[in-house]
Structure formats: structure tokens, C-alpha cells
């Protein structure tokens, strides 16, 4: 399928409407994400930040409008191979598994077994996760779980990175590491939903969903 995106664009959301029952959460939502760009989604509770991320991640359909990632629908499994997403307040980690086991499991869903092991080792070192690798996910602090969740999202070098309130439980040091990791991925587009002014201040562009 030929892409209708500009060459440096990774994702485009055009005039999307999504409602849950009578409540319209997104109406006419439009967004374009370019390579190397970090976009902040801002808005109050219920303004549609997570809904927008879900539509981009392919875990929620739209009522009308269009969502494209690298020229095709994120509802396709092949497209989702190019997306790394953390959605909602919950992590995708399995509580009974250790941090390392969780990362290895998710890496194996995307990569061959040997590349998966290499990718996990690389991301663990990049994000300084050594302290939490042997700890079961359900025994991690909220901050540790957030860091593991970020590592999970970055596995397989996705072209589109979607993060929902990623710094909610992070200390300053971990937040710095997160930003360094995101900025190091200059060929990826990043969309971050956040309430935090300091995070939004570091984005290239902020889209206000309340407005």
C-alpha cells in the first residue's frame, strides 16, 4: 500500500472521532508525528490523551477518521512491530516474573531469540536497570516498574514510541535517563501524554487536547 505520509512522517491521525457510549472523547483529533520529533499530549483527566495513544497503538478502533503508522493501519500486527507502547496507568509486566524475565518475554514476541537476548542486555545497560532485574515485577516499587516498562517499550527499536505518563513515579535521575534514551532515538517519533510541565517543556511540540 502506498503511504500518504510525507517522507519524514511516521504517523498521522486525521480527523478522528472516538466515543464511549454517549461520551465523545476525541472529536476531530488530528496529529502528525515526524521522525526525531517528541510530541507532548496535554489535557486534563478524561481529555482523551490515553484514548489517542490507544488509537495510535492499534488497541482501540476509531469511530471515524483515519490513523496511519508508516502508511498502514496499526490494527495490523506487522504495523505494530514498528510501535512501542505503554498505555494507561498499568504496566504490561507480569507480576510473578522478574524484571529480566519480563523484558525477555516481550523481546521474544518481536525478535529472534538470540537478538532478543542481545536487545534486552543492551536496554538494561542503557537504562541502568541492574538493580531491578532480579526482582519480581510485583515486588518492584512504582518507580522501578516504570523504568522496566520504559525498557519494555523501547525493545526492538520501534519507529513510533507511545508513552502514557511515563515519569509519574520516576526520580530525577531516572527521568534524565529516560529523556536521554528518547533523544538518542533520533529516527523514531515519540508521543508522550503527560501532566507535568517539566516533561512537556522538553517536548518539541505540545498538543493540547483540552483546547
Amino acid at each position: 500500500m502506498a503511504s500518504s505520509l510525507p517522507t519524514d512522517a511516521i504517523a498521522r491521525v486525521a480527523d478522528v472521532r472516538r466515543s464511549f457510549g454517549a461520551k465523545v472523547v476525541l472529536d476531530g483529533f488530528t496529529l502528525e508525528v515526524a521522525r526525531g520529533e517528541v510530541i507532548g499530549l496535554h489535557g486534563g483527566n478524561g481529555s482523551g490523551k490515553t484514548t489517542a495513544l490507544r488509537c495510535l497503538a492499534g488497541t482501540l478502533t476509531v469511530d471515524s477518521g483515519r490513523v496511519e503508522v508508516l502508511g498502514s493501519s496499526p490494527l495490523r500486527a506487522a504495523t505494530r512491530a514498528r510501535i512501542g507502547a505503554s498505555l494507561g496507568a498499568r504496566t504490561g509486566l507480569v507480576g510473578a516474573l522478574r524484571g529480566h524475565e519480563n523484558l525477555l518475554f516481550h523481546a521474544r514476541l518481536r525478535l529472534g531469540w538470540r537478538p532478543a537476548r542481545a536487545a534486552v542486555a543492551e536496554i538494561e545497560s542503557e537504562l541502568g536497570l541492574e538493580r531491578m532485574l532480579r526482582v519480581r515485577a510485583d515486588r518492584c516499587s512504582a518507580g522501578m516498574a516504570s523504568q522496566l516498562e520504559l525498557a519494555r517499550v523501547l525493545l526492538g527499536d520501534p519507529d513510533l514510541i507511545l508513552l502514557d505518563e511515563p515519569t509519574r513515579s520516576l526520580d530525577d535521575e531516572a527521568r534524565e535517563r529516560m529523556w536521554r534514551a528518547l533523544r538518542a532515538r533520533s529516527s523514531a517519533g515519540v508521543v508522550i501524554a503527560s501532566h507535568r510541565a517539566d516533561d512537556l517543556g522538553r517536548c518539541d511540540r505540545v498538543v493540547d487536547l483540552a483546547g
Binding site: 492499534g58 488497541t59 500486527a77 510501535i83 507502547a85 498499568r90 504496566t91 504490561g92 507480576g95 514476541l109
Partner: peptide
Amino acid sequence: QVGTLEALVAQPVA
């Protein structure tokens, strides 16, 4: 309930 199903569906897995 814990959100891992959505995380799995977001993976490139049919």
C-alpha cells in the same frame, strides 16, 4: 484487569 492483555495486543502478535 492488570493491563497486560492490552500490552500483549499492542505487540506484533496476531
